[in-house]
Design a protein around this nucleic acid. Structure first.
Lengths: 224, 224
DNA sequence: CGCGGCTTTGATGTTCATCAAGTAAAGTGG
DNA sequence: CCACTTTACTTGATGAACATCAAAGCCGCG
């Protein structure tokens, strides 16, 4: 395989701290894998051997509890996939699956651990990246918990609008998944979207969303 | 100051990876500080210069938002104080204050960064400790969000029972703080505690709590 | 083409927030 | 040390937000 990590658009996460001469070695040992929408990338309860990150696409991080399925966060490239528990336990405490066709890169944990020990700059970079991601997940959660139904749905819609960089997009998740993400019931998510449609804030055709009144949607996010 | 880090009961967090000969240097540069119940240790919005950890006592981590004050988590020794944002931003995104008389140790961030770069074992230890703490805060949040009022209050009471290692203890937080911790109103926290008292699960005299029926309290935690 | 899961709407009930009002406790200044 | 003020605590009544249940249409997939 031709090594192309030098050209990878997210190499800044790890590889700015690695000399080009060394990079080739890591590059060759890595596995790049395409996953289809719906495919599992990580399964809760399995042993952690790999260090996985998302190169392209969109994923959901979730966990199954006896109260049902709970979506912890959505991840895009630059957000980690191999997140929190990678260095804290021996088994994954959550699952990850692709929401759209995606590409992941897989390195062995051992190799990463060796890098941490050998390359202090890499270690620093990794720590700050992981903490930034953990913090954003946690604070997003704290923000969400202060909002009511309509505010939470607005947040999610605006999140998609921002990552797709458009006011028109196809929802990459079902109504049910949105409910699992914001901690409400499917019925009430549907009602919220319906309200937005009736109020002229959105056009909705199934999964296709067009935001007609963005400033209003932002107001709902901030004051609801 | 006599260096006593060798004897510190929480030196395992950091200092098992540091040679005794070197330890003395870090030990001398550190500041040990006693704080009284109610005192601030970290103030949201201030610049991060120090690496602070809790040696003894109990603290609350909280943030002020325009919706009011939100308690993010409680921390005891071995849980970090200088948590998430230490390596992810330049300002604290939360405050920390002591719930009981406590002792903190303060090192300079620069020194810690030097250590990370120089000592790979230290870096690994630090990463896994920080991730373990981040993960436990996040998953505690996820668990809480699946419970209703009485279940959340049970969880908090059982948490205190476990850290004080007794069924009789003085609540180190007010009803209002418990409300901010579990995301409910003060009135409803009081009602929940009142219910437990009426049902013979607790004896309550102000802040003094005695758990009379622990198995019932656990059932409430698990099924409510 | 038929089955199961997703979506949608309505009706009903539960859980919790809000408002109000009063008591107890704790801090403050003379 | 006491009067005063503020903050914490407590209970009840009411209403809002959300879950649950039910029923029906839709869509995709084997």
């Amino acid at each position: 395989m031709t090594c192309n990590c030098e050209l990878c658009h997210i190499k800044s996460i790890f590889f700015t701290t690695i000399k080009s001469s060394e990079l080739e070695k890591y590059c060759e040992n890595r596995i790049e894998k395409n996953v289809k929408a719906g495919d599992n990338i990580i399964v809760q309860g399995t042993v952690i051997n790999d260090f996985i990150y998302l190169k392209e696409g969109l994923v959901k991080l979730y966990r199954d509890t006896n109260q049902g399925c709970q979506i912890i966060s959505l991840g895009k490239p630059m957000d980690f996939v191999s997140l929190v528990s990678v260095f804290s336990g021996d088994k994954y405490s959550y699952s990850v699956s692709a929401l759209v066709d995606s590409t992941v890169c897989i390195l062995s944990m051992k190799e990463i651990q060796t890098l941490i020990r050998k390359n202090g700059d890499f270690a620093m970079k990794l720590i700050s990246t992981m903490n930034r991601v953990s913090e954003s997940i946690l604070f997003n959660y704290l923000d969400m918990s202060q909002k009511r139904l309509n505010g939470r749905v607005s947040s999610v819609l605006l999140y998609f609008s921002s990552i797709f960089d458009s006011d028109s997009f196809d929802l990459p998740i079902s109504r049910k998944e949105m409910a699992q993400l914001i901690g409400m019931t499917t019925e009430n998510v549907i009602r919220a979207i319906s309200d937005f449609r009736k109020d002229g804030i959105l056009d909705v055709y199934g999964k296709a969303i067009h935001i007609k009144d963005k400033s209003m949607l932002i107001k709902v996010k901030d004051f609801s």
